[in-house]
């Protein structure tokens, strides 16, 4: 019904009577830049998890904030598993979201120099996770990006050529911040404020991205101000 109303409004605004004075054609419809996008079916991560292809023990206990790995992480094929875990960042359902998040965390924390060669394969999962425009998914992905750039030397520099893929979504949401006056914004404490997280992430990119990082970030996000210069 609402859609029909919008359609009528659009029709009216393009009708020749709209040129006449004192005709109210209403406000333009929302473009939906911030709207959450529908998911594109089950992720590869979910398929692999359901099939039991990951070397992790599936436990559902109450204290579980850890993954029990059946194989040592050092022996894992990062080219295969790291992109798959990144693909799971899109998930919003338990337990997929937890295992994807924690799996990425463990692999980045203990990956060392095995992370750098896999960077090109991580760009598409990162981009598609950010493109869901789901606040929860975006927060997780931004925290993971912050972890990624400090996970190993030269990873920050290796991400610079891919700013063009990653940063447009960050540009859209950069100013998404709650103006609560002098009230308390609890999302700050919980680190769920998208605007703040984006600023933190961009600063992390700039710090770890070498000489070209700032100019490349500035090119994609003109409102970004350097945390290092000035």
């Amino acid at each position: 019904m609402k859609g029909k109303g919008v359609a009528c409004q659009c029709d009216r605004s393009f009708a020749f009577t709209a040129r006449a004075s004192k005709v109210d054609v209403g406000a333009p419809p929302s473009a939906g830049a911030f709207d959450q996008r529908p998911s594109s079916g089950p992720t590869n991560f979910r398929r692999f998890y359901d099939r039991g292809d990951f070397p992790i023990a599936l436990e559902h206990d109450t204290k579980g904030n850890k993954i029990a790995w059946k194989v040592e992480i050092e022996k894992l094929d990062y080219h295969h598993y790291l992109p798959l875990f990144f693909d799971g960042l899109k998930e919003t359902e338990h337990p997929y979201d937890f295992f994807a998040r924690q799996g990425v965390h463990d692999m980045l924390e203990h990956g060392g120099n095995k992370i750098l060669p896999v960077i090109p394969q991580l760009i598409i999962p990162i981009k598609s996770a950010l493109s869901t425009r789901n606040p929860k998914v975006m927060c997780t992905t931004l925290k993971i990006l912050q972890h990624l750039v400090v996970s190993a030397p030269a990873v920050g520099e290796a991400l610079v050529p891919y700013y063009r893929q990653i940063l447009p979504i960050l540009n859209i949401f950069k100013n998404k911040n709650l103006n609560s006056g002098d009230g308390i914004d609890y999302s700050q404490q919980k680190r769920e404020n998208v605007g703040d997280l984006i600023n933190e992430t961009l600063e992390a990119f700039e710090r770890s991205g070498g000489h070209d990082a700032f100019i490349n970030v500035k090119y994609m996000i003109p409102t970004y101000e350097s945390a290092l210069l000035n």
């Binding site: 023990a57 850890k66 029990a68 790995w69 059946k70 194989v71 040592e72 992480i73 924390e109 203990h110």
Partner: peptide
């Protein structure tokens, strides 16, 4: 501690 093996043979990894 960085890594421990549980009694069932699985590995737990801990942060820095």
């Amino acid at each position: 501690i960085k890594k421990l093996q549980r009694k069932d043979g699985c590995f737990y990894y801990y942060d820095k």
